[in-house]
Amino acid sequence: MLPVGWLIAAVVVAVLLTMWITFTLTRLDRLHARVDAAQAAMDAQLVRRAAALLHVAESANSGVPAGRRDEYDGIAQRALAAGDAGHERQGVENAVGRAVTELAELPEPLRPDAADELREAAARVLIARRFYNDAVRDTRALRARRLPRLFRMAGRRELPEFFDIDDTLPVPTRVDPPTRH
């Protein structure tokens, strides 16, 4: 028979291991929920940016050159029709980002409210993508540890992928300060 000390040590080790597994499973579940929420928020901001581009392209007095309206309209339509965050979606969103940057760099500036709408939408995409990629990084780091891999704590959930697009913010247009009379 085992001495009482060994029995107590075995129970303590079993309790500590159970607590660690429970803590890790809970953390992993929360991280996956965080990834899902961040992805939903990022998708919403990507749709908002594409809708802003579509609105500016369709507005007759927004300042977009008439010859480029159809091009920007088509880019926005493809972005709005894009599916989940995959490599194809990343390419479409890169095209939207380039279009927003091109519009900000036009020789003739856009109408101020149109430029503000595009700039704000682009800034929101930048922030949402950072939150999403931070959540993915944290989830992947926990899942990459030895014991979570050994015990297959993630279950059958797919490993989340980073969403990498060029979300460079457009340069703000110059605004001349008001003159004093």
Results as ranks from 00 to 15, higher is better:
Pro112Lys: 04
Glu58Asp: 13
Asp73Trp: 01
Thr168Glu: 08
Arg48Pro: 02
Ala115Asp: 15
Asp43Cys: 07
Thr26Pro: 04
His55Val: 01
Pro148Gln: 01
Pro109Met: 03
Ala123Trp: 08
Ala57Pro: 10
Phe131Ile: 01
Trp6Pro: 04
Gly155Arg: 04
Leu147Val: 09
Glu158Asp: 15
Ala81Lys: 12
Leu53Trp: 02
Asp70Ala: 15
Trp20Lys: 13
Glu88Val: 08
Arg130Ala: 02
Arg119Trp: 07
Val12Ser: 11
Ala114Pro: 10
Arg157Thr: 05
Ala121Val: 01
Gly83Trp: 01
Ala9Ile: 03
Arg111Asn: 11
Ala144Gln: 09
Asp84Gly: 08
Arg174Cys: 03
Gly83Val: 07
His32Lys: 00
Leu103Asn: 08
Ala99Lys: 02
Leu150His: 03
Pro65Ile: 07
Gly67Lys: 02
Pro3Lys: 06
Ala37Ser: 12
Ala50Ser: 11
Arg129Gln: 13
Val35Phe: 09
Leu17Gly: 14
Val125Asn: 06
Thr22Asn: 12
Gln77Val: 04
Glu93Lys: 03
Ala10Ser: 14
Asp113Lys: 12
Arg157Lys: 00
Asp166Ile: 08
Arg130Asp: 13
Gly86Phe: 00
Leu46Lys: 06
Ala82Thr: 13
Arg30Met: 14
Leu150Pro: 03
Arg30Trp: 04
Thr24Gln: 14
His87Arg: 09
Arg149Gly: 10
Arg49Phe: 02
Val92Gln: 11
Arg34Ile: 01
Arg68His: 11
Gln77Glu: 08
Thr26Gly: 12
Phe163Trp: 04
Tyr72Ile: 04
Leu46Ile: 08
Pro172Ile: 05
Ala141Gln: 01
Ala50Met: 09
Arg34Glu: 11
Ala66Cys: 06
Val92Asn: 07
Phe163Cys: 01
Arg145Lys: 00
Leu7Arg: 03
Val35Ile: 09
Glu120Asn: 14
Pro109Arg: 02
Thr179Arg: 02
Trp20Val: 15
Ala115Tyr: 13
Asp167Tyr: 07
Thr24Met: 13
Thr139Met: 01
Pro65Lys: 00
Arg48Gln: 05
Arg140Glu: 05
Phe131Gly: 02
Ala33Met: 14
Ala95Thr: 11
Arg146Met: 03
